[in-house]
């Protein structure tokens, strides 16, 4: 029995290292000089770890601006999604009206439509209204979410009907009940929607690549990928950029792991 426990731990350690290896290697290479990276056999750990590459990143590309852009856009999407999805989920859980079922299916149907299938008209629209190279062009198209609405509706439906009845007797308006009772009771689900929305916006690539041309309007993902297309590829520099861009999302993973897992499994668990 003891032996199998040791074997299990050994497997877990080996597995974790293999899965996390590319990321750990990026961290290690970000601390190496370019000449050390070019030695053979390829090094794994830096001989003299230093932060020079990070300094070079700051000097070479406007990384602070990229991070700022990504944070502004992702936060705007989160705020927008929380607003639109809570309002919609409230209508789908507490309000009774004809056509509710039909409208709910209309929402769900957007989950079947890949963004790439609508990207051409969307690009033309954004260009026509002059939103290329703007925050609103990057954020507004993603401010409604069927997935988030669905998740919040599930949470809202857990709220006891007695609270609703009591609020009506007390003379609270429909909107007031949403603000004073439903929202405060649904914080975990709202957290899931927020983390999910932030992560997926922050990690976007195709859309920001299309609609930003000015260097200063680029987001982190597009910004660091540009380093790959420079004439001389400086790997230490690229890896330092990679780490700087990945740190916020990794921090979010550690802090919001539970919310993230709830979101990912919402669709997989039956019902």
């Amino acid at each position: 029995m003891r032996l199998s426990r040791v074997a299990n731990y050994a497997l877990l350690v080996v597995g974790s290292i293999i899965v996390a290896f590319p990321l750990l290697l990026a961290l290690s290479y970000s601390l190496m000089s370019e000449s050390e990276i070019a030695t053979f056999p390829p090094p794994i750990l830096p001989a003299a770890p230093n932060l020079d590459n990070y300094g070079t990143v700051f000097a070479t590309i406007p990384i602070v601006r990229y991070l700022l852009n990504s944070f502004v856009v992702s936060s705007a999407v989160v705020v927008g999604q929380l607003l639109t999805a809570s309002l919609a989920a409230y209508a789908f859980s507490f309000l009774v009206f004809r056509g509710r079922q039909l409208l709910f299916f209309l929402f769900l149907s957007t989950l079947m439509i890949p963004w790439e299938a609508t990207i051409i008209p969307n690009y033309i629209t954004i260009r026509t209204i002059g939103w290329l190279d703007t925050y609103q062009g990057l954020a507004v198209p993603f401010m409604a979410t069927a997935f988030g609405t669905f998740l919040l509706r599930q949470a809202f439906m857990q709220i006891p009907r007695e609270l609703w009845d009591a609020a009506r007797i007390d003379g609270a308006t429909t909107f007031r009940f949403l603000i004073s009772t439903v929202i405060p009771l649904s914080r975990p689900a709202l957290g899931t929607v927020a983390i999910y929305g932030f992560l997926s916006t922050y990690n976007q690539y195709f859309w920001p690549l299309l609609i930003t041309n000015q260097t200063l309007m680029r987001t982190t993902q597009v910004g660091i990928a540009q380093l790959r297309f420079e004439e001389t590829l400086r790997w230490g520099l690229v890896m330092a950029g990679v780490i700087m861009v990945a740190v916020p999302t990794l921090a979010l993973l550690v802090l919001g792991q539970r919310q993230l897992i709830r979101g990912l499994t919402a669709g997989a668990v039956k019902g």
Binding site: L12, V13, G15, S16, A20, L23, I224, R228, M239, L260
Partner: peptide, 22 residues
């Protein structure tokens, strides 16, 4: 171990592609 092995959910495709390129 669970956190380490599931860490790639937070990694963007651009970051992953750059590392694997190396």
């Amino acid at each position: 171990f669970r956190t380490m092995m599931s860490s790639t959910i937070a990694i963007s495709a651009a970051v992953g592609a750059l590392i694997w390129l190396l």
